[in-house]
Computed example of a mutant assay.
Amino acid sequence: MDFERSLAAVSVNSDVADVLRELCDLTGMGFAAVAGMTEDRWMALQVYDRIEFGLNAGDELDIAATICNEIRETGRPIFIDSVRDAPQWRDHPVPATYGFQSYVSVPLFRMDRSVYGTMFAVDPKPHVIDTPEIRKAIGLQAARLMTCLYPDAI
């Protein structure tokens, strides 16, 4: 992945901004982003932040210290209504580090089915997001997002 090229294209894409805003509206969460990643690198490519989460487009995180890395490895989405009520996540270091209670992240696949990155949302408060209706709507948003990114996601 050419991170700088992807950042230049994605960070100014108004269609991506619309999808991220809609993701926050759908889930009630205050922060959403698109991240690009490889096995050894993670970068926020565009963010929508109404809670001052503090992550900006172009910021990089240690890929090993992200839940997105787990999504990259498995290719499966993660939906967490409340970290404190989820045994698998309550002692995980990432929610504690970043201070979120609710989290959703879905993989973004290239045409060859390799993982381009993730579309995710977080919030310091719990939100009911793990429902069939929300899962379907977020899946459709992720597909729409990739149609916006496809030329830069190859």
Rank of each mutant, 00 (worst) to 15 (best):
M37E: 10
N56T: 09
T38C: 03
S102L: 11
D62H: 07
V106E: 07
G54D: 04
P95W: 05
G75E: 01
E73Q: 14
T38W: 03
I51R: 02
I67T: 08
A86E: 15
R90L: 05
Q101Y: 09
E70C: 05
M43I: 02
L108T: 13
D40G: 10
S105H: 02
C68T: 02
P107I: 10
V94T: 01
V94W: 04
E52C: 13
G54V: 06
D62Y: 08
Q88R: 14
W42E: 05
R41P: 05
S102T: 13
W89A: 15
N69M: 07
A44W: 01
D85F: 09
S102N: 12
A65F: 07
S105R: 03
T97I: 05
W89R: 11
F109C: 08
E70N: 10
Y103N: 12
D85I: 02
D49I: 01
A44K: 01
Y103H: 13
Q46C: 11
Q46A: 13
R50D: 03
G99Q: 09
E52G: 12
R110I: 08
A86V: 02
A44T: 00
H92T: 04
V106N: 03
H92S: 05
N69A: 10
W42R: 11
S82H: 11
T38K: 05
I71V: 08
E39Y: 02
H92Y: 09
L55Q: 00
A96L: 14
P107G: 09
D81R: 09
Y98I: 06
E39A: 15
L108I: 10
Y98A: 01
F53W: 08
R110K: 14
G58F: 04
Q88I: 00
R90Y: 05
Q101F: 11
D40H: 02
L61Q: 02
A64Y: 07
F79V: 02
Y48H: 14
S102R: 14
F53V: 02
Y103C: 15
D59P: 06
